[in-house]
C-alpha cells in the first residue's frame, strides 16, 4: 500500500528540519511507540533483546536546542548507514512490536530515501520511503512518501484500519518535530547560524 503526504512546519528553516530529521534521537523521541533507534553494523544480524536492554539503561542524549549542533550532526543518519529500531504500534485490537531495520539509501540535502523492514510475532512489513524538504513562505514543507507491503495479522485488517494508524503515527511524529523545532526558533539566532553551517 502507498502513503504520502506533505507536512508543513512553520517558522523553521530547511536546514533545521534537515538536521532534526537526521537525528536518530529526535526521531526516536518523536515517533510514537519507539523504544530505541540506534545505528548497527550488520543489518542481517541484530540482537534486539540486547539493544532493548542497553537502551533501557542509557539516558537519552539531549536534542536540539539543548544539544550541540555539532554532536547532532555527528550522530546524524548517514548514507549507507543501517539503523535498528523497536517500535510498538497499536493496530486495531493488536499491539505488535516491530523489530525494524532501516537503511539510508540516499541522503542528499534536501532529499533522503530509506528502505527497511520490520517484523513482529504475527505481522511484518517491508517499505521504501523518501522525503524532500521544500522551503515555503512561512517555513518548510516535508513532502514524504512510503510504499509499504504489510504481511500477517496487520495486513488482514486491511487499509480501513491501517490508514488511520499510519496517519496518526505520521501526524504525531511531525507535531512533535514541530514542537521541538519551535524551541530552536526561540533560541538566539546564533544556533540557527551554527545549524546552517553543519549542512
Amino acid at each position: 500500500m502507498e502513503f504520502d503526504g506533505t507536512f508543513g512546519l512553520a517558522d523553521v528553516t530547511t536546514e533545521e528540519v534537515w538536521l532534526a530529521l537526521s537525528d536518530p534521537v529526535m526521531i526516536k523521541n518523536a515517533l510514537p511507540g519507539c523504544q530505541f533507534l540506534v545505528e548497527v553494523d550488520n543489518p542481517d544480524d541484530v540482537d534486539f533483546d540486547a539493544l532493548e536492554e542497553a537502551a533501557a539503561e542509557e539516558e537519552d542524549p539531549a536534542t536540539l536546542p539543548e544539544a550541540d549542533p555539532e554532536e547532532v550532526a555527528e550522530r546524524g543518519l548517514a548514507q549507507g548507514g543501517h539503523y535498528a529500531a523497536l517500535v510498538q504500534v497499536g493496530v486495531g485490537s493488536v499491539k505488535p512490536r516491530f523489530e525494524t531495520v532501516v537503511t539510508i539509501d540516499r541522503r542528499e540535502f534536501p532529499e533522503m530515501d530509506a528502505s527497511g523492514q520490520g517484523s513482529a510475532s504475527d505481522s511484518s512489513f517491508e517499505m521504501d520511503s523518501g522525503m524532500t524538504l521544500v522551503e515555503t513562505d512561512d517555513g518548510v514543507d516535508v513532502e514524504w512518501w512510503t510504499e509499504a507491503d504489510v504481511f500477517g495479522r496487520v495486513a488482514q485488517m486491511g487499509q480501513r484500519v491501517i490508514n488511520p494508524v499510519a496517519n496518526r503515527v505520521v501526524g504525531r511524529f511531525f507535531k512533535q518535530v514541530q514542537k521541538e523545532l519551535s524551541d530552536v526558533g526561540d533560541e538566539s539566532s546564533g544556533l540557527r547560524d551554527r545549524i546552517s553551517s553543519y549542512i
Binding site: 507491503d149 504481511f151 500477517g152 495486513a155 488482514q156 485488517m157 486491511g158 480501513r160
Partner: peptide
Amino acid sequence: NGQLVTGSMQD
C-alpha cells in the same frame, strides 16, 4: 502479495 485484506468479520 496475496495477503487477505478481508480477514475478519469487520472487513
